[in-house]
């Protein structure tokens, strides 16, 4: 089931078109990654999805409700954190949740405790938010996003500022939400490894357009590489370059991975007196993939 559909969304500010037609869809139960360098339009897109910025053209629908025409009904199905969860520090965690719960039509009070225990904040919920650590604020942010039982959860940089343990915990938590509760979770991150570990599908965005949307594994396997440890290396390079493109790594040679050809090439090398000490298949990091797809557009 499609929970979020983004069709040809554009945003123009002055004469400059900063989002040049973005399309993608989210299905229930999946974690969708939103990846792009700074300034690619990630945050602008997320702000359009959450109704903070109005698109110049195109349509966004959440669970079938058009965000422009049925704003209230569409937003009933969405929870979000845009950038850092900037909650009211002068209120307690509980008061913050009460505040946002009051903005949900037909809110049922037992949901409050459900959400608090879901994010594990029972101990500190009656303390002022200004005394919270960043990790606790992040969790309170998620709690407020989940208050209305949304079908779509949008998290902008959810692991920003968390320590390694917190990051792992957050990752597990997001996977659980998608797998157990069937939510669609859209996650943007500048940490490529994060997206790789967390997401089912990923959209790569650069300069205001989505340049590729695919399953994470599919994207990576299409770019799988073979690492060769050969001795002597120069002779090995000479032989391999007859069949395929070879690049030199640190004491290794790197070629594309071709399931049918690899064994053939290996036999050839051995028969010509090159010692093959290692053959490793390697999935590229999303980072390399990204550089390849965008032609070197920078990412941090």
């Amino acid at each position: 089931m499609i929970t979020l559909a983004v069709k040809d969304v554009r945003k123009r500010i002055g004469k400059k078109e900063i989002i040049k037609g973005i399309n993608f869809e989210l299905y229930d139960g999946e974690v969708f990654g939103f990846l792009g360098p700074n300034g690619a339009g990630k945050t602008t897109t997320i702000r359009m999805l959450t109704g903070l910025i109005k698109p110049t053209s195109g349509s966004i629908s959440i669970c079938g409700w058009d965000l422009k025409k049925d704003f209230t009904k569409a937003m009933m199905n969405m929870g979000c954190i845009v950038e850092n969860p900037e909650l009211y520090g002068f209120l307690t965690g509980y008061e913050n949740l009460v505040h946002f719960a009051r903005m949900i039509p037909g809110f049922e009070n037992n949901r409050m405790n459900e959400v608090i225990s879901l994010v594990g904040l029972n101990q500190r919920i009656h303390d002022k938010v200004k005394t919270y650590s960043l990790g606790m604020r992040q969790r309170l942010g998620i709690a407020q996003a989940l208050l209305g039982n949304p079908k779509v959860l949008i998290l902008d940089e959810p692991t920003n500022g968390l320590d390694p343990a917190g990051i792992r915990e957050m990752r597990q938590f997001i996977r659980e939400l998608a797998e157990r509760e069937g939510l669609s979770v859209l996650v943007s991150s500048h940490l490529l490894s994060e997206i790789q570990l967390l997401c089912d599908r990923v959209a790569i965005i650069s300069k205001g357009t989505v340049i590729k949307t695919d399953r994470v594994e599919a994207l990576l396997s299409s770019q799988e590489k073979m690492i060769w440890n050969l001795n002597p290396i120069d002779k090995g390079e000479e032989i391999l370059s007859k069949y395929t493109e070879v690049t030199r790594g640190e004491g290794t040679l790197i070629t594309e991975f071709d399931e049918d050809q690899a064994a053939e090439w290996c036999r050839e090398l051995v028969s010509l007196g090159v010692r093959v000490t290692g053959m490793n298949r390697k999935l590229p990091a999303l980072e390399d993939l990204f550089l390849e797809l965008t032609g070197g557009d920078s990412i941090d």
Binding site: G51, F71, M75, C80, V82, E86, L87, M103, I104
Partner: peptide
Amino acid sequence: IGSIKLLLARP
């Protein structure tokens, strides 16, 4: 505070 983003992204 920045809370405007949470305040307006509501039904």
